[in-house]
């Protein structure tokens, strides 16, 4: 005869059985669900059209939009672009941001990546030269096209937006241009700094600043063309804004990334860049000193 404790424990087991059964079923259910999810994600990851991620300087906003749309139509690959200041991306990529390609607004950052071994060597490509414009809203009383630099001395211009020169190439170019025009010291009090060239544009476009030194590529966008008028800053006023792209060593989709870079270099890609204000050749003129 079994001891009462035994009987009790047997009874307890019996009592517990349905629960245990239940929990077992539940567990298999979860396992199955998990396996289903996993296979779904794996399948999604292995799907043939590749997706590449691009970190791009803010002045490329409209050019790359066109470029990506055409490229996607041609190849079926998808391109997602993150826009920001080149310096910002430089710091992010150094710390392992998972981008395939980096389109900088200058030549230095990509070169530094190459030197540091963070980029695929031989992939550096100078896709164009950026230009600076002096932009004012359409209703501004100041005639920038006629007055050029002098417009900035106008009392109606109280705030001038530029990109932050500490980490945005267009900001550095703006400061250099203002200095070479000899008016930097007179207007420093008027300067406000956008986090990148897009934010500088946003400051003027919203009317909070009265003028801005912006990228030609942004000024040529349909919206900005409608909202304002601009004067092209002479190319010799600042060191040329040679802009380059590079493929990152950590890129998970090297094949697709290379293909996109090839598309940028192709005549179709070049045409898009020209249309958006990136000239293909660096101007031979050396950086001008004081005129």
């Amino acid at each position: 005869m079994k001891s009462p404790t035994h009987r009790q424990s047997a009874a307890a087991t019996q009592l517990l059985t349905p629960f245990r059964c239940h929990s077992l079923q539940r567990r298999t259910l979860f396992l199955r669900l998990g396996a289903a999810c996993l296979s779904f994600f794996l399948a999604a990851g292995a799907a043939s059209p590749a997706a590449i991620t691009v970190a791009a300087a803010a002045d490329l906003k409209f050019a790359l939009q066109d470029m990506a749309a055409q490229y996607e139509k041609q190849t079926g690959n998808t391109v997602s672009v993150t826009y920001g200041s080149s310096g910002n991306f430089y710091a992010q990529i150094q710390n392992g941001a998972p981008f395939d390609l980096f389109f900088s607004a200058d030549l230095d950052y990509p070169r530094q990546f190459e030197a540091a071994g963070l980029a695929e060597s031989g992939t550096l490509y100078q896709y164009g030269v950026g230009r600076l414009v002096l932009w004012v809203p359409a209703n501004s009383p100041v005639d920038v096209a006629r007055r050029g630099w002098d417009a900035l001395r106008d009392p109606a211009i109280r705030k001038i937006a530029i990109a932050n020169p500490t980490h945005a190439p267009y900001g550095r170019a703006a400061v250099a241009a203002l200095k070479s025009a000899g008016i930097y010291d007179q207007i420093t009090a008027k300067l406000v700094y956008g986090e990148n060239i897009s934010q500088a544009a946003q400051f003027v476009e919203s009317g909070n600043a009265d003028a801005g030194l912006l990228a030609l590529a942004l000024a040529l966008s349909p919206h900005m063309q409608q909202a304002g008028k601009f004067w092209s800053v002479p190319a010799a006023a600042h060191p040329p804004l040679q802009q380059a792209a590079i493929m990152l060593k950590s890129s998970p989709n090297k094949k697709a990334a290379r293909a996109f870079l090839e598309f940028v270099k192709s005549p179709a890609g070049r045409a898009i860049l020209e249309k958006h204000g990136f000239s293909s050749l660096a101007p031979a003129a050396p950086p001008a000193k004081t005129p």
Partner: peptide
């Protein structure tokens, strides 16, 4: 601050 400050 980033959006309305202008980093002065």
């Amino acid at each position: 601050v980033l959006m309305v400050g202008g980093n002065l």
